[in-house]
Structures are given as C-alpha cells and as structure tokens.
C-alpha cells in the first residue's frame, strides 16, 4: 500500500468516525429501536468504489470498534459488528456487478442486511425468535434511509471520487 493510499484510508476512517459520533447524538426520530440514518455508510460505499474492498473493510471495522469506544456504548458493539459485517459483505458483492449509477441500490440492500445482522445477533443473544417481527418495519426504514445515504454517496462519488482516484494513481 502506497503512503498516499494509506493516508487517504486513514482520512476516510476519521471522517466515518466523526459522522458516526455526531449521528449518535441525534435523538431517535421514531420510538422504534434500530431506526437510524446510517450516514457513516456513505464513507464505506465511497471507499469500496474509490479505493477497494480491503481498504473499505479496514475503514468500516475501525469505525465500528472506535465508534463504540467513543460513544461509550460497548453493549451495542455486538449488534453494530454483526450488522456492519453483513452490510459490508452484501455491498462488497453487489459492487462487483452494479455500476456507480446504481450505488443507491447497493446502499439500500446494504442497509437491509445491516438490520438483518443486528436482528440475528439480538435473536441469538436473547434466545427470543419473536424479535424477528421487527424485520418488516426495519426493512421499510432501511429502504428510506438507504436511498438517502446512497444518493449522498453517489453525489460524493461524482464530485470527489475522481480527485481521490487521481491522487492515488499518481504515485504508482
């Protein structure tokens, strides 16, 4: 990994972390747990497309680990990690055959998988299968927030993607 790539990855990790910590301060919009915007996923999507999967994995994993340390919510770590892992896996596969103009769709499916991962972790931890009744509600919420963050990522790719790609390829 070149120094430039390493620096850009570190910078994106910092950006993801800041977004994550700020978003955690926003009070919940609905009385149903599990509904949130997931803006930090914009950075994961951007990194997958611009830098690659390995770098995006590092950014996401570090954001989840440091994020639960910074927000002081270690109990939610298991759920964040399960959701993040499944979301990342889904997006890493989808970006193989979906082009940049379908990033919104990658984001939506990633968001749905994030909820599936979190619910699966909750079912395993509590041993209560009834928690799966959250899935329809959370899926609808994931589609709404996923479209929003996906469009945000697409705008970011259009404006900043080329510059970053050029910056990295200069020192090969």
């Amino acid at each position: 990994m070149s120094t430039k790539k390493l620096t850009v990855t570190a910078m994106l990790t910092a950006a993801a972390l800041v977004i994550f910590v700020i978003e955690a301060q926003i009070p919940p919009v609905a009385p149903i747990p599990g509904i949130k915007l997931g803006l930090a996923n914009v950075v994961t999507l951007f990194t997958i497309i611009v830098l690659g999967r390995r770098e995006a994995f590092a950014v996401t994993a570090l954001r989840i680990i440091l994020g639960s340390v910074f927000t002081g919510n270690m109990m939610s770590f298991v759920y964040s990690a399960a959701g993040g892992a499944l979301c990342f896996a889904a997006m890493a596969v989808l970006t193989l055959f979906m082009k940049e103009n379908m990033t919104w769709c990658v984001s939506v499916i990633g968001a749905i998988f994030h909820n599936v991962g979190q619910l699966a972790a909750a079912v395993i931890v509590t041993g209560t299968i009834q928690i799966l009744w959250y899935l329809p509600v959370l899926t609808i919420s994931a589609v709404i927030t996923g479209v929003f963050t996906g469009i945000a990522a697409q705008c970011l790719l259009k404006r900043g993607g080329g510059i970053i790609k050029k910056l990295i390829s200069e020192t090969k």
Binding site: Y79, T126, I131, W133
Partner: peptide
C-alpha cells in the same frame, strides 16, 4: 422504556441487556 406503549403485535418491546421481550 422510551418505546412507550404498544397495543398491537406490529413490533414487540425488547430489552436487549436484560433479555426480556
């Protein structure tokens, strides 16, 4: 606690730390 009242089975109330649903 913040979830408040439920009056249908649309979503259950879950207390993850205490494993109560």
């Amino acid at each position: 606690v913040n979830q408040g009242w439920i009056d249908s089975g649309a979503v259950p109330i879950v207390c993850l730390p205490h494993k109560i649903t």
